[in-house]
Amino acid sequence: MTEERQVADWAATPHVDTIRGTLEQPVAPRPVPPRRRLGRGPLISIIAGGAAIVLLAVAGVVGFSVGTSSHSPDRPVRAFLDDLTAGRVDDALSAAGIEHGKDDVLLTDAAYAKASGRVTGYRIAATDTAGDTARVRAYLKQGGRDVAATFTLDKTGTDWGVFPVWDLEAPRLGQVQVAVSGPGGTAVRVADQEITTSKDGIATLKALPGEYSIAVDGGKWFTADAQRTTVSGFGGAVGSVPVTLQTTLTDAGQQAAKDAVDKWVDGCIASTETAPPGCSFYAYGEDPAYTYTNQKWTLESRPVVAVSDWVSRGWLVSTTTNGRAKFTADISNSAGTGTASAGPMNVNASGYITGFTDQGATFVSAVGNGSSDSGS
């Protein structure tokens, strides 16, 4: 097709403005009501309300969990052991309801600070609850080892009607038991606290877990080797093995003992009786036909003694060499005058040193009126 032909064909086409007819109208879509937007305020309120419910639920769960934990039976045990490991003895005793008085000299902050091998830590092993009673088993870190301990608690009520309240029963304390082989009323220092023994030489002290030093205070007269004893844990068969302190006389005590023996011998020699009371020698065979005057004892030699360990009545005094004494008297009757004599006879000074005062030793003879002597 030529270019001229193409132009003729386009010329024969009607112009768009000359076209007439009926146009089919398109179907209009059904109007859709506009979606109502919520205001910002109500939306936030709904979200906040839902969040509040969730938070309240979470808070309730957390609160119940915290309340349950804070009211568990091991809580009072932990409080007691926390105070104890920190050396707050007064607080620990108060928390556990442990009664103590002025004679309980080891149950103080100062005394416990002097003990070694104290409780330095702990761990709770288990808690068993049966009705209104709970038992908490723990291990105490004491002296580098674990010591088992069981604590008993009683339910005494509830908080807010929900959470149980547990009270710790006072744990049974151990004891430091001391037996002094020495006079009753001897001063003893335990963890630097001074006490005195009973008349039979015994002292028993309540004590917290720990290792305690024990020493006799015999002044210048007697002494004993210092010892240590350990109180392990609480409850059950606790308490230290009784510690026996065997006393021995010092040089001053030995001299005082021998001085006391000499004083006793001198007292017997000073007697004017043929049988000096409480003495180990006597004379006999008086003739009732004579009158006796100027009666006296003369000591020819002193007994030699040795003082050894304490026995049931005192430090034992043994006579290693008997002394010798002689009795003389003037006699007279209607027939005339003369002299009478007895001995020399043994002077036995065996006995006991029963104690000391500021003036020295006290000696008690174990023999009397020559019961172990032949007499003359």
Rank of each mutant, 00 (worst) to 15 (best):
D259R: 02
D192I: 06
L173V: 01
S69K: 11
V307Y: 07
R172K: 05
D167Q: 15
V180A: 02
S45N: 09
W310R: 04
G184V: 02
A28S: 10
D167Y: 06
H15E: 12
G182Y: 06
V243H: 07
L81Y: 09
A260I: 00
V265G: 05
G278M: 05
A187W: 10
F151G: 02
T274V: 08
S65I: 03
A95T: 14
A79C: 01
T133E: 15
L168Y: 10
E169H: 15
S232E: 13
G21T: 00
I19A: 09
P42D: 08
G285Y: 03
S116W: 09
G336I: 04
R228T: 08
S372T: 12
G201C: 03
A237Q: 15
A130R: 07
D17I: 13
I202P: 00
P164L: 00
K206P: 13
V304K: 07
A325Y: 07
S232C: 05
V89G: 04
E4A: 15
Q295P: 02
A48H: 12
A179T: 05
T156P: 01
V178D: 14
V188A: 03
A134I: 07
T247D: 01
K199Y: 09
A130L: 13
T291W: 04
F356T: 02
F281W: 15
A148K: 13
E211K: 15
A366R: 09
V147W: 01
G355H: 03
S213L: 05
S372Y: 10
D159V: 12
R30K: 11
F222E: 12
Y352V: 05
Q142F: 03
A340E: 10
V77K: 06
P183V: 04
P73V: 01
R313K: 15
I202V: 15
S376K: 09
V261K: 04
G351M: 00
S371K: 07
I353S: 02
K199W: 07
T85Y: 06
S371G: 14
S365K: 07
A52V: 00
T272S: 05
A325V: 03
G323W: 00
Q175N: 08
T362Q: 15
N333C: 07
R20L: 08
S376A: 13
D225C: 01
E211N: 11
R78H: 15
K263N: 13
E273A: 10
G184P: 02
